[in-house]
């Protein structure tokens, strides 16, 4: 081909990973921005989605030399994997929410963070089920081209993830503007008053926690499918959770477009730091990466102090 597709593939990678983070951010925004449930276990639900997808989608892989094998290998079609990932994550989220959702925001954060860390420890150590740190490779792309074509592959992934994001955005917009979404915002602003109006706030919180968890599971599925590989130690570390917080805070809590913008901006920062790595002298290669995380930290502090409503602030709703 005349044009160099390498850079396009690279940009495509940036876009679809950003979309994965955008879906995570949408899930977290639904939980925190709309309902005030401060979830610190985003990485855990992300992990459940990714592993469920990997178990469901990959072909059978019996244990071999140097590979401990993993659970499943059901060779199911991709959409079934997505549904399973969402159901698994949503169900686990509901179970986690049952005892914790009534707690104060800080207790909830610590409990969910602990939950995510336990899950990661299990994923690293339970080799017969998750293949440990070796990870599960070989998830097939949405369309298998013959002969293999990197550019078309990237474009298909991009198309699929963009379509999912668009669909989610419209659905969530509808949900957020519905009476149900109105109750969520009421719970966030004043839970006692909402209770006094006869709403069972516990039910609502349970539901929104499960739906947010299901969205995170969907993001896990999309991540597994687009990266073709699931591995526990780096992809699902608490840093992922913190990044998603920054995305939602940068974009603006309680605002769907904000989450998407925030995801693109913050993941763009990471992508840029990876691209910059090739241009800096050898001894600074790692520094670039760590500087990026420091910038994320500074952004968190500065934004939470000076602009807690984010770039795009939540629409003011006035009673008429």
């Amino acid at each position: 081909m005349a044009i160099d597709t390498g850079i396009l593939i690279n940009v495509g990678f940036f876009v679809y990973v950003s979309i994965v983070f955008a879906i995570l951010a949408l899930g977290f925004n639904l939980q925190w921005g709309y309902s005030g449930l401060f979830n610190a276990g985003i990485a855990g639900f992300f992990l459940i989605g990714a592993y469920t997808a990997a178990f469901a989608i990959t072909p059978r892989t019996p244990p071999s030399v140097g590979y401990p094998g993993h659970l499943g290998g059901f060779d199911l079609p991709l959409p079934v994997g997505a549904v399973l990932a969402m159901v698994a994550s949503g169900a686990v989220a509901a179970l986690v929410a049952l005892p914790t959702v009534r707690l104060r925001a800080d207790y909830l954060a610590i409990a969910t963070l602990a939950f995510a860390e336990v899950l990661r420890i299990v994923a690293i150590n339970l080799e017969s089920i998750t293949a440990g740190t070796i990870g599960i490779p070989g998830l097939s792309p949405p369309i298998v081209f013959n002969p293999p074509n990197g550019f078309l592959n990237a474009m298909v992934k991009l198309g699929v993830s963009a379509a999912i994001l668009l669909g989610l955005f419209m659905t969530l917009h509808f949900i957020a503007e519905s009476p149900w979404g109105r109750v969520l915002r009421a719970i966030r602003d004043d839970e006692e008053a909402t209770m006094a109006l006869g709403k069972n706030t516990f039910q609502y919180k349970l539901q929104v926690f499960a739906i947010g968890g299901a969205l995170m599971g969907l993001a896990g599925w999309l991540f597994a499918v687009t990266i073709n590989y699931v591995e526990p130690s780096g992809s699902f570390a608490p840093t992922v959770t913190f990044s998603v917080w920054v995305m939602v805070i940068v974009g603006g809590a309680g605002n769907l477009r904000g989450s998407i913008v925030g995801a693109f901006v913050i993941y763009g920062l990471e992508w840029l730091s990876v691209q910059l790595k090739d241009f800096v002298p050898n001894q600074f290669k790692d520094t670039v990466f760590y500087t990026r995380l420091m910038i994320v930290g500074i952004l968190l502090i500065v934004l939470i102090i000076y602009r807690p409503e984010g770039i795009l602030r939540e629409k003011k709703r006035i009673l008429r």
Binding site: A105, W245, T291, V296, G297, I301, I304, I305
Partner: peptide, 28 residues
């Protein structure tokens, strides 16, 4: 001190930021 009276979540977020700065500053 600037986050006083803003509920428990805002200082948690800021403290995570402080943690990220310290941890990655040490790494860098």
């Amino acid at each position: 001190a600037r986050l006083e009276g803003r509920g428990p979540v805002a200082p948690i977020v800021a403290s995570v930021g402080v943690g990220l700065i310290i941890q990655n500053g040490i790494r860098a």
